[in-house]
Nucleic acid binder design. Structure first.
Length: 198
DNA sequence: AATCCTGCCAACCGCGAAGCG
DNA sequence: GCGCTTCGCGGTTGGCAGGAT
């Protein structure tokens, strides 16, 4: 699939490139998008893309913003607790990545999806039977101290959120800002934003 | 030292749902 | 009620980096 996207933007004709840019985002584009949203907020993405002067589709802008540029995006290792939650929620909801992501503040559906496919699913495929009762069997869990099934006394502090229940302790608005670690390069952009915005 | 393999991640695409005139 | 536009989601792909041989 994605035949025209296969070569990313590298081989786009100059004509196409003038129309719509594809492929990896440049730092310049990131800055434009960040500054524009910081000033005007998120709006209609297609309009936003045009108004900001980005030669990107609204879709592309949205994806870039949600998965990478948003100030509260958390990056870095999935913690054992998060892994546990992901597995639990996946057992419950299946591939509803966006729904699962909402229970993991700062994590994106794309990240969780990638995590699942590359780590958990692969493990499962290689004959390591998925054990939802004890997700710590999966890799990355070697450092985990948590043991036992979720049904015994060693149940981790995570609880399964009540879906769509704002009163549930795990219900988190999309923009919770509790992440103070695992920040990535874009933090520099945000640090710089003051003088870009002025 | 060179090559091959594997894992990870960013980005794109297609489709369905929702919103609006 | 209908058609169009936009959004959001899930699946998939391609490139890069690091490790293994």
């Amino acid at each position: 699939m994605g035949e025209e996207g296969n070569n990313m933007d590298k081989r786009l004709s100059s004509n196409q490139e003038a129309e719509v840019r594809k492929g990896p985002w440049t730092m310049e584009e990131d800055l434009i998008l960040i500054n524009y949203i910081a000033t005007h907020g998120e709006g209609v993405w297609n309009t936003l893309a045009r108004s900001a002067g980005l030669k990107r589709t609204g879709k592309s802008c949205r994806l870039r913003w949600l998965n990478y540029l948003r100030p509260d995006v958390r990056r870095g290792n999935i913690t054992p607790e998060e892994q546990f939650l992901i597995m639990e929620l996946h057992a419950r909801w299946g591939n509803r990545w966006s729904k699962i992501a909402r229970q993991l503040p700062g994590r994106t559906d794309n990240e969780i999806k990638n995590y699942w496919r590359t780590r958990i699913q692969k493990k499962n495929k290689h004959g390591d039977p998925m054990d939802y009762q004890n997700p710590m069997h999966s890799d990355g869990a070697s450092t985990s101290q948590t043991s036992g099934s979720m049904q015994d006394a060693a149940t981790p502090t995570y609880t399964i959120p009540q879906m769509d229940n704002p009163h549930d302790p795990f219900y988190a608005p999309p923009f919770s800002n509790d992440c103070t670690d695992n920040f990535w390069g874009v933090e520099d952009f945000w640090a710089m934003h003051s003088f870009h915005g002025d």
